[in-house]
Amino acid sequence: MEYKEVVGRRRSIRYFQSWRPVEREKIQIMLEAARLASCAVNASFLKAIVVFRDDLDRDTLDALKTPVSALNIELAPVHIYTFADMSAYRGAQPRLKQLIDVGALTATHGWSYKFVDEFVWPNLLKPLSEGSNQAPVAAAAGCDAGIAICQAMLAAVDEGLGVCLSGFVYEPLKKILNAPEQWLPLWVLLVGYPAESWEAGGQRPRPPLEESFFEGRYGKPFKADPKVTEQLKAAKMIQRPAPLPWRKQEIQALARMFGLPE
């Protein structure tokens, strides 16, 4: 599938084929996509633990459920518990120098070993790595982890899978997952084959481009060019908007199939 179509097809899938396992190799593809995501100071902020639902005992599975996510957690055969590693700034000094070695950070842009060793590391990154100011660390870690999660989600869509990010209750999982203390729990990425059609009722409503994006200064909307919009429709990035005419019937059928209330 072409990239634009992958972006256009992604939906939060809330009905999974609970009985159909997800191939381990597809999970690996998702994790590789996450691993290759852009990240500040070449730090891997995203950490994740893959749990195959059927490896959990019933009590643990029940304990993970929130009122909103209970059904999704039950339906999705794979749960990827994601965390932001608040200690990821540690080791940034050699990693930045490695980026100089591989030609990513270069003298043309002012980078040198000396700049890293005598300015960037001691003045900027070392204090962050020591946790003296948690707010910027959390912001950077959360943002970069989100970028990586998004790449994993798009890779999943490209593999024909459905994905949905959901909140989770960490406490009952703590002992099982054994995640380090400095990992901040983010979301659980639920993965499975969609039980609903891939369109899932159509592309979700979003505010128009001009409402969220600006040019030059706040208040001057970034104007969408209708020709580009048409190109994106042709490339299937902009798709039929929800609700598609048959969505309610689809939900009724899914409710009957899974024995759910209407």
Binding site: S18, P67, V68, A70, L71, E74, L75, M257, F258, G259, L260, P261
Partner: peptide, 9 residues
């Protein structure tokens, strides 16, 4: 009142 039944199949 948000309630989920879980799968009943």
């Amino acid at each position: 009142i948000l309630l989920q039944s879980g799968m009943q199949i």
